[in-house]
Lab assay of single mutants.
Amino acid sequence: SIKEIEKEEIIKVLKEVNFNKKLASEILGIPLRTLYKRLKEYGI
């Protein structure tokens, strides 16, 4: 599903940037606030 793909992509990017959420949100092209929402939604 799209949610699974998105979750995997978020985890992959977070690992690449050593869990720097600000940098991860910039790489993913989403606002930091949205990233936090996704992390909560996906239980990351």
Rank of each mutant, 00 (worst) to 15 (best):
S25L: 02
N18W: 07
I30K: 01
I5L: 15
I30F: 04
L23W: 07
L39Q: 02
F19M: 08
R38S: 07
V13T: 09
E16P: 01
I44N: 05
I30V: 07
A24S: 03
K3L: 11
Y36I: 15
E8W: 13
S25A: 15
L39F: 04
R38F: 15
K7R: 12
K22D: 06
I5E: 11
I44Y: 11
K22G: 06
K3W: 13
R38Y: 15
L28C: 02
Y36G: 06
G43R: 05
E16C: 03
E8C: 07
K21V: 14
P31T: 14
P31W: 04
V13K: 03
L39T: 02
S1T: 14
E4D: 14
I2L: 14
R33G: 12
G43F: 07
I27T: 06
K12Q: 11
K7S: 06
I2W: 11
G29H: 06
L32P: 04
S1P: 14
V13S: 03
L28V: 02
N18T: 04
L23N: 05
L28N: 00
K22T: 09
S1L: 09
K40P: 02
L14M: 13
I2M: 13
L23K: 12
E16W: 09
E41W: 06
K22N: 07
R38A: 14
K37I: 11
N20H: 07
Y42E: 06
Y36T: 11
S25R: 02
V17M: 06
F19K: 03
I27F: 06
R38Q: 12
K15H: 11
F19A: 04
L32N: 02
L23Q: 10
V13W: 03
R38K: 15
I11E: 08
K12N: 09
Y36F: 10
G43A: 08
Y36P: 01
R33F: 10
E26R: 10
K21P: 11
L39H: 01
E26D: 11
K15V: 11
Y36M: 15
L35R: 00
G29C: 04
K22H: 11
L28Y: 01
L23C: 03
T34I: 13
I44S: 05
Y42F: 13
S1C: 06
R38I: 15
K7Y: 10
R33A: 15
K21N: 08
G43M: 08
R33T: 13
E41M: 08
R38P: 01
L32H: 02
L35K: 00
P31M: 04
G43P: 03
I30T: 02
E16H: 11
E4R: 06
L32M: 08
I30H: 01
L28P: 00
R33W: 12
K21Q: 07
E9K: 15
E6M: 11
E6A: 11
K22V: 13
I10W: 03
L23E: 08
K12S: 10
K12W: 07
I2N: 15
V13I: 12
L39M: 15
K22W: 10
I5N: 14
E9F: 14
R38D: 03
G29I: 02
V13H: 02
V17S: 09
I10L: 13
R33S: 14
S1K: 02
K3E: 12
Y36L: 15
E8A: 15
K37P: 02
K15D: 05
L23T: 08
V13P: 00
K3D: 12
L14D: 00
I10K: 00
Y36N: 15
I10R: 00
K7H: 06
E8V: 10
A24D: 00
L39V: 05
L39D: 00
L32I: 10
I11C: 03
K7A: 08
I27D: 01
P31E: 08
I44F: 10
L14I: 06
K21H: 14
G29Q: 10
E26T: 11
A24W: 02
L39Y: 02
E4H: 10
F19H: 08
I10D: 01
I30D: 00
N18E: 08
S1R: 01
E8F: 12
Y42K: 02
P31Q: 06
I2H: 13
N20F: 04
K7W: 08
I44E: 05
Y42M: 13
K12C: 04
K7V: 09
R33P: 09
E6I: 08
R33C: 05
K21C: 04
T34P: 02
F19T: 02
L14A: 01
K15Y: 10
L35H: 00
I2Q: 14
I44W: 10
N18I: 03
T34G: 05
E8H: 12
N18D: 10
L32F: 04
P31H: 07
Y42Q: 04
R33V: 11
L23D: 05
K3Q: 13
I30L: 09
I10P: 00
K7I: 13
L23S: 07
S25C: 05
E26L: 12
I10F: 09
L32A: 03
L35G: 00
I11H: 05
S1H: 12
P31G: 08
K37M: 12
Y42L: 15
E26V: 13
K37S: 09
P31R: 06
F19D: 06
I27Y: 07
K37T: 08
T34H: 08
L35A: 00
V13D: 00
E4L: 10
E6G: 11
K40R: 13
I44A: 05
Y42T: 04
L39G: 01
E26P: 02
K15I: 13
K12P: 01
A24C: 04
L14S: 01
K15M: 12
I44M: 09
L32C: 02
R38H: 14
I11Y: 09
Y36H: 11
G29P: 01
N18R: 10
V17Q: 06
K3A: 13
E16S: 14
N20G: 02
K40V: 12
E16M: 15
K21W: 09
R38C: 04
K12M: 09
T34Y: 08
L32K: 03
L39N: 01
E8K: 11
G29E: 06
S25H: 03
K3I: 11
E41L: 07
N18C: 06
G43K: 07
T34W: 07
E4C: 07
K12H: 08
I10Y: 05
L14Q: 00
K21A: 12
L32W: 05
I27W: 06
K3P: 11
K15A: 10
